[in-house]
Design a protein around this nucleic acid. Structure first.
Length: 490
RNA sequence: CGGGGUGUAGCGUAGCCCGGUAUCGCGCCACAUUUGGGAUGUGGAGGUCGUAGGUUCGAAUCCUGCCACCCCGACCA
């Protein structure tokens, strides 16, 4: 591991790339656009999965699994859906290879599929084709299913975690008897995502609705949570879609109502992906490396012994054992790094890079004084404290760190959210102080497109429960009843 | 996919213009001394120069194709 990290101010993109690599989160694979998620990175993802999975189950959902491959014809059934995904699909056309006689393995042209298979970019079509067989009566509803899966979107330009050709995610797909129920489900899941982002990832998010331009292909309404990264760019961290009856109509999924009428089923879908890893990294980390919220850190506490000789090490280890037992009793994950192949300073730097929230160091002095050095990753402060009640102290500290990094991120977002009233000020703000910009907009797709064309900023969302305020569109001067949130985005 | 750039040991690089089998640093291995913020010394290992062709007596170096990555656009979770 080489020393140092490019600083954020020097080159934010490079800082991010180096951090992902040096903190052992992920690396590029031999496959275009696809990453290898390394064990440390994957363990963070697993923590996220575990929390989300529990939340899905608490809200009545069950997990299921649908095929990786989707017959091409399924895609043509929902017109706007195919438009949205057609340009980024991986397609399977053959099912066999052969030896060409010169020692080369080639595709066997005789093994062409009758119908091509699409590697799923999202699963609405295969799932709604399946739901057709599951739903006859209102008694069969609702269906509340989630799937943990990989999907493929053949992106032109990729970045580790933020945009890869293959990514891991969960996609919930629910079926309801009424529009009201489906909308309530869409909103409920948005709340689940927001709660997860804020209380687990320590990432403040704005809940809102997408404009028509930014809506999911096939949705009537797309709700989202939007977060602000340290470089002032926005990141869509999760989406929840109200799909109306679009997919039910496309796949002819009807049910008999209480009144004996045939009606189309109402649908939702919602998802978050390994992109959340990117959000987590960019939201909190600093020029020394990753900063992880304690609730998602695979290792919450690391203990480093500082010793001269094996005898001293064994005495320290004895004292450390007591602390480890107390921490484990509280369900705190702790690692004791007594490797004698690395020196303490090296270990300090390494665990800072990996974002371990709390570090204890114990040496000969501490042994004598019944103390330990307690360091917190987020503020990089350290103090020597008594070992009495250390586990309680750490338990509180972890909670404090969780709160502290949330508030730091929230303060950053507050400072970088500006109200702007003229288009000139808007452009100036984008270039000089990037962040969220709340501005009036006339509500038309044309104006939105013009702003995007000219400034590369998009409407991230129309915040839910948005403050109503009379004003005029900053571009066209037409009347507007509320401000919407703009930003340049990932 | 369009424009620009890069690819030499695990990582970062020199050499390329002007062709003759590769430089340096970090890391790695062994031993010794070390250990309260990325140790030091001595010795050692590690390379089909991204890849496939071409030119040439000879290619890291010149030419062509392909692949990957980075930056800027378009697209996107």
């Amino acid at each position: 591991m080489s020393k140092g990290l490019t600083s954020r101010s020097e080159d934010y993109s490079q800082w991010y790339n180096e951090l992902v690599a040096k903190a052992d989160l992920a690396e590029h694979s031999a496959v275009r656009g696809c990453m290898v998620i390394k064990p440390y990175g994957y363990s963070i993802w697993e923590k996220m999965q575990a929390v989300l999975d529990q939340k899905f189950k608490e809200t009545g959902h069950s997990n299921a699994y649908f095929p990786l491959f989707i017959p091409k014809s399924f895609f043509s059934k929902e017109a706007s859906h195919v438009d949205g995904f057609a340009t980024e699909c991986a397609v399977v056309t053959h099912y066999r290879l052969k030896n060409d006689g010169n020692g080369n393995i080639i595709v066997d042209e005789d093994a062409k599929l009758e119908e091509e298979l699409i590697v799923r970019p999202t699963s609405e079509t295969i799932i709604w084709n399946t739901y057709k067989g599951w739903i006859q009566s209102y008694r069969d509803l609702p269906i509340l299913v989630n799937q943990w899966a990989n999907v493929v979107r053949w992106e032109m330009r990729t970045r580790l975690f933020l945009r890869t050709a293959e990514f891991l995610w969960q996609e919930g797909h629910t079926a309801h008897a009424t529009a009201e129920e489906a909308i309530a489900e869409t909103e409920q899941m948005l709340d689940v995502y927001a709660d997860f982002a804020e209380n687990w990832m320590a990432l403040p998010v704005v809940k809102g609705k997408k404009t028509a331009n930014e809506r999911f292909a096939g949705a009537l309404d797309t709700y989202c949570i939007e977060a602000l990264m340290q470089d002032g760019k926005a990141l869509q961290a999760g989406t929840s879609h109200f799909l109306g009856q679009n997919f039910a109509k496309a796949f002819d999924v009807k049910f008999t109502s209480k009144e004996g009428k045939q009606e189309f089923v109402w649908a939702t879908s919602w998802g978050v992906s390994t992109r959340l890893m990117g959000a987590l990294i960019m939201a909190h980390s600093d020029d020394s490396g990753l900063v992880l919220p304690p609730k998602l850190a695979p290792i919450q506490v690391v203990i480093v012994p500082i010793y001269k000789g094996e005898e001293e090490l064994s005495k320290i280890s004895e004292a450390v054992d007591v602390i480890i037992k107390d921490l484990k009793k509280k369900g705190i994950s702790v690692k004791y790094d007594d490797r004698d192949t690395q020196r303490p300073g090296f270990k300090f730097a390494e665990y800072e890079l990996k974002g371990v929230p709390v570090r204890l160091a114990m040496g000969g002095r501490d042994l004598e004084n019944n103390t330990v050095e307690l360091a917190r990753r987020d503020t990089k402060t350290k103090e020597t404290v008594s070992r009495d009640g250390i586990a309680d102290r750490i338990e509180l500290l972890l909670e404090e760190i969780q709160q502290s990094i949330y508030h730091k991120a929230l303060q950053f977002r507050t400072e970088n959210t500006k109200k702007v009233d003229s288009y000139d000020d808007f452009k100036k703000a984008l270039d000089e102080t990037p962040g969220f910009i709340a501005a009036h907009w006339d509500g038309t797709s044309e104006t939105e497109a013009k702003i995007k064309e000219e400034t590369k900023a998009t409407i991230r969302c129309i915040p839910l429960n948005n403050e109503q305020e009379e004003g005029v569109c900053m571009v066209t001067g037409k009347p507007s009843s509320q401000r919407v949130l703009f930003a340049r985005a990932y």
